[in-house]
Amino acid sequence: MRLRIKEHPILNFEEEKKVIHFTFNNLPVTGYEGDTIASALHALGIKKLSESSHWKRPRGFYCAIGNCSSCSMIVDGEPNVRTCITLLKEGMDVRVQTNKGEIHDK
């Protein structure tokens, strides 16, 4: 949880939030209620979310508001989920996406 803001002069992040359990590439990890998948991963120091489909270059998020699709991952078997705007839910299975994503992946 090294990237969580603990003290802030204006905003209040101190309130205890519910812990949400999920898996990242099969690894059990946690985030907080109210997180998006991307913010929870980022807080854990996980920045690479996908690979570019052709050159397999690492990709993280860029806009964080659903504009650019740079944060696409496979979530519960569904590819091309924009994880920067998708709320984290208990038990989610989140994976790095390394291809364009196939409909029948689901």
């Binding site: 969580r4 803001i5 913010s39 690492p58 993280g60 964080a64």
Partner: peptide, 24 residues
């Protein structure tokens, strides 16, 4: 295109909406 290179809006969203620092 390397992860960790973010738009200013993304940095703000991450910090001020989700309470997560973009880096140190």
């Amino acid at each position: 295109d390397l992860p960790g290179i973010y738009g200013a809006g993304a940095v703000q969203t991450l910090m001020n909406v989700y309470g997560v620092k973009p880096g140190s």
